[in-house]
Design a protein around this nucleic acid. Sequence first.
DNA 1: GCCATGCGCGCC
DNA 2: AAAGGGCGCGCATGGC
Length: 557
Amino acid sequence: MVDSPDGRMEEVLDYLGRFPFLGLDLETTGLDPHRDRIRLLTLATEEGAITFDLFRVPQALEALKPLLASPRGPVLVGHNLKFDLGFLLKAGLEVEGGRLWDTGLVHQVLNAEARMPSLKELVPELDKTLQTSDWAGPLSQEQLAYAALDALVLHGLYQEQHKKVNQRSLGKVVAIEHRALPAIAWMELSGAPFDPALWEEAVAEGEGSLRSIQEALPKGVNWNSPQQVLRYLRELGLNLPNTTEETLAQHQDHPLVAALLRYREAAKRLSTYGEKWAEYVHPTTGRIHPSWQQVGAETGRMACRKPNLQNIPRDQALRRAFRAPQGRVLVKADFSQIELRIAAAIAREERMLRAFEEGQDLHTLTASLVLGKDPKEVTKEDRQLAKALNFGLLYGLGAEGLRKYALAGYGLRLGLEEAQRLREAFFRTYPALRRWHLSQPEGEVEVRTLTGRRRVTDRFTEKLNTPVQGTGADGLKLALALLWERRHQVRDTFPVLAVHDEVVVEAPEGAAHAAQDWLVQAMREGMAEVVGEVPIEVEVGVYRDWGVTPLAVGHAQ
DNA sequence: GCCATGCGCGCC
DNA sequence: AAAGGGCGCGCATGGC
């Protein structure tokens, strides 16, 4: 326990610096790095733990900088390090990802799990009752022992996980996760800029349209209840299997069904994207700090919660509420058709690869090849159809599925035979895709992304989708990692959103150009590292807000 | 009142 | 031969 400033600090640091790895754990006065403070910082070696009481020795943090924040040094082992990094970052201590080992993330990578387990789940004998005790006042012996034990158990876990990572050849993936980790902590701490007044405007308009739609619907039925809707429609003589948009879309000619569809859209807007959002604005930063889940999907994709910023409607009225503060801008960049490129690389589909190399529009190409038209004669509708073919058939959609998918997703009505014919034409056009599908083994197998991320599944469609979606996630994480590692190339610039194939950063208006280059280079290099030979295209623009009000547009290949 | 589940739908 | 995949959240419902 280090609870008084004395001359031993240098000695202690010297001692700690000689170990290959250190368990790291913070006890804080709360969960919010913007409001709460670090009380204890524990570093554990296999010999024992040293706990610094930062209330009594605040200068210890500064003294620990050379040990914790230099690019080289002991591996820092912790559980859910995003939490600790948020507090350390807030305190001005920047840790490099190459030195980290997060037992939570590694467990998720080892088992392809979308949820991070608690440390208690990995070390059942651990007693967590003190975790939520009062860490602001005088500390009991039990509390001190708890802080030390938490850090100590990490050693055993690290050894165990390290072995499994090597056995399953997951070293590369684990490295990607650890390099991305500081960037994600950074993004969460920074938060997204949000203007509640603009949001409220959109909400008010939504309320108006909901009211007018409600007038077209009979009273006495809860239109939010699928059960009641189904019963009502049956009384009208419409016997439907369910009330999904896909089903209802086939009866749009019925005025009540049409009104119901409009009601659903308006109601969704107001329930999920309504008044509640004011609560998410942080009282001190004035921004929204969602919880980014680094391994949020079994494929390796990220997820986002409380609130989810990855499913904001594309409606400009809502997106413009994500608005940079005065004098600042948002730079938004996204990968163009990234999953198709990755699929083409994995399946070695020469025709697709050639099209990408020549800079062709793949949806137009598919339309022209499948429909036997000159590319110049491909209509907007043809291209829409090709989009449905490309995205649906790639991952194992059947003819019946294609019909529904084309109708629900693209508003296109196809007959079953027509769908069948298009499906066959698609696979004749891209024979390597067919071979890729046919080459999938039966039963439970492991599938991997191009970086080696692993998932075990027995489902055909997951065998196809996981390597593609997961490789995209790997490339995006490498891009985020590069932003962190190259953060000194820019000033006052940081990531605020990551949406699967899109990254948004915030920058001073005068530095927009530099921020754009920084972002585009990281995205190109990050993705290029995982896909190899396929060209990567990144579309980028500078805006006041989330892609609504442009200042300048650029293009980089 | 709390909690789990199913349905439905926003995004990629 | 056939099989899109991945999330989070709000509401309704039913059990306690």
